[in-house]
């Protein structure tokens, strides 16, 4: 772990999360700095998406908590932009590109109001940034995979957050889109935004990110990429699961055992 001090974007404290009663993340604990491109990297089934969803508050952890700039998620939601996995929605839905990008301007506070001219302008600008303005009236199902991914990114840009959380934005996109997304990420970083990306491809991870969270159901390493991307640590993350740990997980699941003892509470 790096000793230098930095402004915290995100702190994850002792996070344990289970899926169907089986723990998929064990006591994850790390802090991430502001203004960096950060990759959450690990093999398949290592809990990357689960971690991202728990950070977003979409899943309830069994223990632990997340703080964003020292505040709980609920207080700072409007500073977070989110890009879910592209496959998580049905693209055959009757909507055009602009409809989806405008969703980035929806907020709890404007539920009964119309979107303002400002909102519309921001949506148009966001679409322009991903180079899809000419497609704004296109039905989303007619787009290529790369274009759909860019629509999701435009929606996140329209949210105008300080911190971006993206789930596998590089999956199933063509090389041109990959470059375009990458350029956008670098531009966002230069404006001081923090970008946290779930990424499964080890080949490109080192090239893309400044920081890395290396994950395999437990935290293997977290820090500047030079410190994380070492042979030993990669071996540890990718060299198969810890057998005893997964046996414990199975036991907990089968016996419907609690993950934390009753009455035990996390110290804040």
């Amino acid at each position: 772990m790096s000793e230098e001090t930095f402004d915290l974007a995100l702190e994850v404290h002792n996070l344990t999360v289970s899926y169907n009663r089986k723990p998929v993340l064990w006591d994850i604990d790390f802090s991430l700095p502001q203004g960096k491109l950060i990759g959450i990297v690990g093999p398949n089934g290592s809990g990357k998406t689960t971690l991202l969803k728990t950070i977003m508050g979409l899943l309830d952890p069994d223990s632990g908590y997340v703080e964003i700039k020292g505040e709980p998620m609920e207080k700072v939601r409007n500073q977070i932009s989110y890009v879910p996995q592209r496959e998580s929605v049905d693209w055959d839905f009757p909507a055009d590109v602009m409809d989806v990008v405008k969703m980035g301007r929806y907020q709890k506070s404007n539920i009964l109001k119309r979107l303002s001219q400002d909102d519309k302008r921001i949506a148009i600008e966001s679409l322009e940034k991903v180079d899809l303005l000419e497609f704004s009236k296109r039905q989303i199902g007619e787009l290529s995979g790369g274009q759909q991914q860019r629509v999701f990114i435009a929606r996140a840009l329209a949210q105008q957050g300080d911190i971006y959380l993206m789930d596998e934005p590089f999956v199933g996109v063509d090389a041109a889109t990959e470059d375009a997304i990458l350029q956008l990420l670098v531009e966002m970083k230069s404006k001081g935004k923090t970008v946290i990306i779930v990424h499964h491809d080890l080949q490109t991870a080192y090239e893309y990110f400044d920081w890395m969270v290396l994950l395999n159901t437990r935290l293997v390493a977290c820090g500047p990429k030079e410190e994380v991307f070492t042979k030993e640590k990669l071996q540890e993350a990718y060299g198969g699961r810890l057998t005893v740990l997964s046996k414990i997980g199975d036991l907990i699941s089968n016996k419907e055992f609690p993950i934390r003892e009753k009455g035990f509470s996390e110290k804040k």
């Binding site: 969803k53 977003m56 508050g57 979409l58 609920e74 939601r77 409007n78 977070i80 989110y82 879910p84 998580s88 929605v89 049905d90 839905f93 909507a95 989806v100 969703m103 929806y106 907020q107 709890k108 539920i111 929606r155 949210q159």
Partner: peptide
């Protein structure tokens, strides 16, 4: 209807 998780993520 289109994206429940996103609605949840933006605090709806």
């Amino acid at each position: 209807s289109f994206n429940y998780e996103f609605a949840q993520a933006i605090g709806m």
